[in-house]
Each structure stands twice: as structure tokens, then as C-alpha cells.
Design a protein around this nucleic acid. Sequence first.
DNA 1: CGAATAGTGTCTATGAGACAATATATC
DNA 2: GATATATTGTCTCATAGACACTATTCG
Lengths: 308, 308
Amino acid sequence: MKIYSMTEEEREYLKQYDMTRYDRPSIATDMAVFSVMDDEAAVERGKNRSVQNYRKSPESKMKILLIQRGDYPYKGYWALPGGFCRKEEDIYETAKRELYEETHVRNAYLQPIGIFGEPGRDPRGWIISHTFMALLDGKMSKLRAGTDAWEAHWFDVQMDKREIEKNLKEDSAAIINEYDLRLQYENIQLSAVVREKKEFVQYHETVKYEIADCQEIAFDHAKLIVYALLSLQRQVEQDGKIVFDLMPETFTLTELQKTFEIILNRPLLAANFRRKIADYVIETDQMVEGAGHRPAKKFKRNVEAFYR
Amino acid sequence: MKIYSMTEEEREYLKQYDMTRYDRPSIATDMAVFSVMDDEAAVERGKNRSVQNYRKSPESKMKILLIQRGDYPYKGYWALPGGFCRKEEDIYETAKRELYEETHVRNAYLQPIGIFGEPGRDPRGWIISHTFMALLDGKMSKLRAGTDAWEAHWFDVQMDKREIEKNLKEDSAAIINEYDLRLQYENIQLSAVVREKKEFVQYHETVKYEIADCQEIAFDHAKLIVYALLSLQRQVEQDGKIVFDLMPETFTLTELQKTFEIILNRPLLAANFRRKIADYVIETDQMVEGAGHRPAKKFKRNVEAFYR
DNA sequence: CGAATAGTGTCTATGAGACAATATATC
DNA sequence: GATATATTGTCTCATAGACACTATTCG
């Protein structure tokens, strides 16, 4: 390999080079941390089930991790966990560090999904957010202990799509959708409406997102959350592999299916689902115990299949 | 909509807030600008065809736009076009501006594909690159006029995959691939080898790219180029829509098919291809003229189909 | 046995891939 | 007519979706 080595002239040039002559933004990461779990798991694991419905399986829900801001700006509002990129830190390292600080999870699916640098998005100044999506096995995370000024909680996520306008012609298109976002943790309710504008300009598609309404969600994070949810859906629709990142080491096929259903927001037929994911899982000899009905086999990932 | 409005206390807080207490990187965009065209088009359009083979259709090739660096560091090396993000400029705007400056194209498919911020990637200091992929209709671009110190050219792209290691087990996997990249413009030959390491760590996939060899390509741009090519391939493999962004307003189905083939790096059967893309195109009444064989119908995009 | 969930078998429609056949320009 | 490409028809096989059916545990 040919190594790049500097000449004396170059060394001189770089010595004179002044990085600060250009304005520079602060770089932040915001983490959309998702998990799928039932409410009991969200509060405390392994607690007593309600006595009446002991036969019913608990309902799984999509969750997102939010923290309440303890400082200005948006003091008291809820925001995605995140923080600033440290000097000479790779942005992925920043994301991993933030994730660990908030959840004590070291290994998780982590993916950059967007860059939001619109001027004015943060009153403190020019701050570019690198938004990451993280998928957590809900059983693994231990939230950072909250203080008065800094609470972290798993919020239920509900998002509904509404079509506002759809104008399709042979050579042009304009589509506007609205996404109603509702987030809930105990008696705390947050909500937002994010508008998606798709257009065809000179034979090229353009998509824009803007916040139409926002209750108690800090900065432009409502937009980031909607964007992250749409990214997740789109990816799972195309290739379900990443859903496994939401699962623990072993799981039943029904648990896996429910996780798919929650993300895709539609029911799946068990027989077809099982056929589809059959190659990706391997039966273990564990069984679920103590349910009021036929016990399910536990499965684990078949790593070979993930690489075709 | 509830408007976020500041209190006096908050205004005071922000006044004291010192952005400069954290280190900040410079933010750059690097543009992987791809186009598919025949060599004649790359040099000058509409020129005389070679007389012997007037009946043969010209061969299309994948091209990438590179500039020769006129300054240190990597003076004389070839690099992706790019530049720094200006104050209060959205990073997408930076990318659009750069694209326009280099190619005089305003509308093109533009997509962020990666963030590269590894310490040491630029000898000038802490510079985070936001890499964008742009797809251009080759007939549209007019390269910025070159000067002695600043040449821009369309390079032929050839990338081949080589499997180095493949260790698949039930619960773990380690895969190493190498990508041989060769770029050529007239008698200028650039090359690189980029290694891709995939692993399964605690049930989660990790992928890393590193440069194993690099000839005459500046910075870590060999890695960015390979990464961009892989992104393009993956996307087209999943959903061919973006290929249309490489096409002019009207085109023949064979031209479209060739473009797919070049990206996917494999031949397609015409009958099947046509069935697959049938809904996305509309016949026009134009025909190709003056070819030494049956003339092809010209088609245009069917915008309706792009929105399902 | 009834409730509740786990798991399987099969029919059909749709789409991908392979291959053969036909069509139409120029020279 | 020869060359070179354009365009269409059809067979097979794999897969997705719908639906009906069987299995197993607890109480």
C-alpha cells in the first residue's frame, strides 16, 4: 500500500491552516430508542399478573425512551436522549456512549437515520442533530436513575396516518400526509402532528417534513420521532431482519410475530408468518411454562440465515 | 398549535450560554455523483460515431465525478467534490450548492448515505464528512470548467467483490469481503481496495469498512466511494425506482435496462425486465432514429406509479 | 370439557426467471 | 437478405395470502 506522506512544503501549509476561519456548528446526536414490551415489563419485570385474566397473554406495545429536560431551553419538555459529540469522537461513538449512559446497554442495533440542521431548530445556536435509531431488547435495558430534574421513561407510542391531499397526474404529483403522534407514560400525554409533503419536481421526488402541532415535545423532536418511526416501518416492510434486534436471546414465534405486527401496524396470519421466518430461527429445547394454555417452544436466531 | 415562547428567565439563561465551551468540528459534505453514460457522451455529446461499428449500440458505463485537488493536503490526488457547510446553512443545502457548482444541475436525486468522522481522517483537523449520493442524468450535466489546479472529470467505475473469509456458525458469524475499486479517466488510473468486515456480536450485526490499499485517491474517499456504490446497489436491488433518476426525460427501455444492469452488475432478461417496469413508464410517440436496426420507442416516467 | 394459545396443511393467485419466437429498421 | 436490436408470448417454479384444521396445556 502506498502510504501518504507529507512533504516539507505541505507541513508548512497545514501549519498555517486555520480551522477557525470557518464557522462551525455544534454536533449533537439524538437517539430514537425503541423497544417493544408489555406495560408490566416497562414498569418492573416479573411482577404479579392481574388475577382475573391470568390466561390472556399480556399486550405488547411499542415504546420510545424520552427524558424530561431539566434545563433551558424547553425546560420541563420531553426530548429524545442525546448529547454533544466530544472532540475527536466519532459520531457513532457518541451515539453508543449516549445509549449506554441512558440504558446501560452496550450492544444494540444502532443506525443513523437522518441529519437535521435547519437553522433555528435550537435556540442555543447552530446545532446539527444526527439522529440515530436504536432497537433494544426490552428485557435488557436499565434506565438511568431519574433525579428531580432528569427523568427518563418508556413512553407508549401510537402513530396514525391521515391522507390530506393526493394529486396524482401523469407527469406530476403532490401528496400531503399527516401523522398524528401520541406518546404516553402513566398520566403524561404528549402529542404532535407532523406533515409530510411529497412532490415530483422535474422528474425527481422531494419529501419534506414539518411540525404542524406539538404538545410538550422539545425542539423539533416530534419530527425526528415520526421520521424514525417511518424509517423503522419502511425497513421492516422491506426486510424484516432488524426486527430480531428487538428480541431477547430466546423468544417464542408468537412474540416475534407480535413485534412485527406492532411495527407494521397490521395483523399477520400465523401460518404465513411462520413460513416466512422459518429459516431465521432455530428451535431450542426450552418451553414457556405456566401459561394457561398450550405452551410455546422457544426459538433462537439462526445466524447463518442472516447472511443468506 | 401551542407555540413555544420563552420566559425572561430562559432568555437570561441562553444569553449566558456559551456555545464555544465545547469543541466543534468542521462540517463538510462529500458528493458521490454518479451517472451512467457512454464514453462519447462523457467527452462531448453528439459527435461522430466510429464508422466501422455504426450498427452497434454504444456501451454504457458507470461514471463518478472526481476533482483533482489543487491544494494541500493530498495535492494532486483525486477526490470527491465537496466543501464546507456554511454558517446556518442546512447540510442538504450545502450538498445542493456543491452539486450545482460542480455540475450546473439543480434537480437531481440527492441522498445522505453516511457520516464519516473518524479522528485523523483529515490532516487539517477535526472534520466530519457527510457523504451524499447524487444521481445525474448524464445528458444534463455541464462540468465546471477546469483550471490547471482544479480539474473535474467523469471517471469510469469498476468495482469487483472478493470473498476473503466466510465463517458461518449457528450462533456467530465473521465475514470479510474485499472490494477492488478501479477508476479511470483517459490515461489516469486510480485504484483502491476496501475491506468490509461483518460480524455478529451478541446477536447483533456490525459492519466496518477500512481502506486496505489506495492509489492516488485523497483522504478516505476510496472508502466513501465503495460505500456509496454499495448503497446504490443495495437500494436498486430492493426497489429500482431510483434508477429512473439516472435517466433523461425520455428514454428507450433498452437504455433503462442497461442502466439497471450496470448498477446491479449482472445481465437481465429483456422480457422479464419489461414486465417488471411496465407500470412505471408510458409510451410516447417518439422513436429513435438512424440506428442500423429496428428503432426503439421512447418512453417517459409514469409519475402515478411511483406513488403506488 | 372449555378457554386460550400453539402450530400445520393446503388451495389459489401472483410474480420471477428462463427461453422461444416474432418484428422492424438500415445497409 | 443479413445484421442488429426491439418487442411479445408462454411455460415453470417459488412465494405470498387466505383459510381451515389439529394440538396442547391449565383449570
